[in-house]
Computed example of a mutant assay.
Amino acid sequence: MSSHFLAERSVSPATGAEQWVVVDAGTYTLHAQACAYLASLRSRGCSRSTERAYAGRVALYLSYCQDQRIDWAAPRFVELAGLQRWLITEPLPARGRQSSLVPRFRSSGTANAVMTVVSGFLRFGVVHGWVTPQTVAVLSEPKQLFHLPPRLRPRRGGPVP
Results as ranks from 00 to 15, higher is better:
His128Lys: 12
Ala111Met: 06
Ser47Leu: 01
Arg95Ala: 14
Pro161Gln: 13
Glu51Tyr: 01
Val126Gly: 03
Gly158Gln: 13
Ala73Arg: 14
Tyr28Gln: 15
Arg156Cys: 09
Leu62Gln: 01
Val23Tyr: 00
Arg123Gln: 13
Ala14Glu: 12
Tyr64Asn: 07
Glu8His: 09
Leu152Thr: 03
Arg151Lys: 12
Gln66Met: 02
Glu79Arg: 07
Gly26Glu: 15
Val23His: 04
Val102Leu: 11
Ala94Asp: 15
Pro150Ser: 14
Phe5Arg: 00
Gly96Val: 07
His128Cys: 05
Pro103Phe: 03
Gly96Phe: 11
Ala94Phe: 03
Ser40Pro: 07
Ser43Met: 08
Leu41Phe: 03
Ser47Phe: 03
Leu80Phe: 06
Trp72Thr: 04
Pro159Gly: 08
Tyr37Ile: 05
Ala113Lys: 10
Asp67Val: 12
Gly56Tyr: 02
Ser3Glu: 15
Ala32Tyr: 08
Leu148Ala: 11
Gln144Pro: 00
Ala113Phe: 08
Val118Arg: 00
Glu79Tyr: 09
Arg151Tyr: 15
Leu30Asn: 05
Arg42Trp: 02
Ser10Asn: 11
Ala59Cys: 04
Pro159Ile: 11
Gln144Asp: 01
Arg106His: 12
Pro133Arg: 13
Arg95Phe: 09
Glu79Asn: 14
Pro161Thr: 13
Gln33Thr: 13
Ser3Gln: 15
Val127Gly: 07
Val131Cys: 05
Thr50Ala: 01
Gln144Val: 14
Ser10Arg: 15
Gly158Ala: 08
Asn112Gln: 12
Leu62Asp: 01
Trp86Ala: 13
Pro133Gly: 15
Ala59Val: 09
Arg151Pro: 05
Ala55His: 06
Ser47Gln: 05
Ala25Cys: 07
Asp71Glu: 15
Val23Lys: 10
Leu101His: 04
Ser49Leu: 06
Arg106Pro: 01
Gly125Ala: 04
Pro91Glu: 07
Pro154Arg: 09
Thr27Lys: 02
Ala113Thr: 08
Gln144Cys: 04
Phe124Cys: 07
Arg97Thr: 10
Leu148Gln: 08
Leu87Gly: 10
Gln19Asn: 10
Arg9His: 07
Tyr54Leu: 00
Phe105Val: 02
Pro142Val: 01
Gly96Arg: 02
Pro13His: 03
Leu139Tyr: 06
Ser108Thr: 14
Pro133Phe: 09
Trp20Glu: 00
Gly56Gln: 11
Ala17Tyr: 07
Gly125Phe: 01
Gly120Ile: 04
Arg76Ala: 10
Leu101Asp: 12
Leu83Asp: 02
Arg52Gln: 11
Gly109Asn: 13
Gln98Val: 15
Gly129Asp: 05
Ala7His: 00
Arg42Val: 06
Gly26Trp: 11
Gln98Cys: 07
Val11Lys: 13
Met1Asp: 10
Arg95Tyr: 09
Glu18Gly: 05
Trp20Thr: 01
Val138Thr: 13
Val136Lys: 04
Gly120Leu: 05
Gly96Asp: 11
Pro150Cys: 04
Glu51Pro: 00
Ala74Leu: 10
Pro150Phe: 06
Arg156Val: 11
Leu92Met: 10
Gly120Ala: 12
Ser119His: 02
Val136Asp: 00
Gly26Val: 03
Gln19Trp: 15
Ser40Glu: 08
Arg123Cys: 09
Gly45Trp: 03
Ser3Arg: 14
Gln66Cys: 00
Glu18Ser: 15
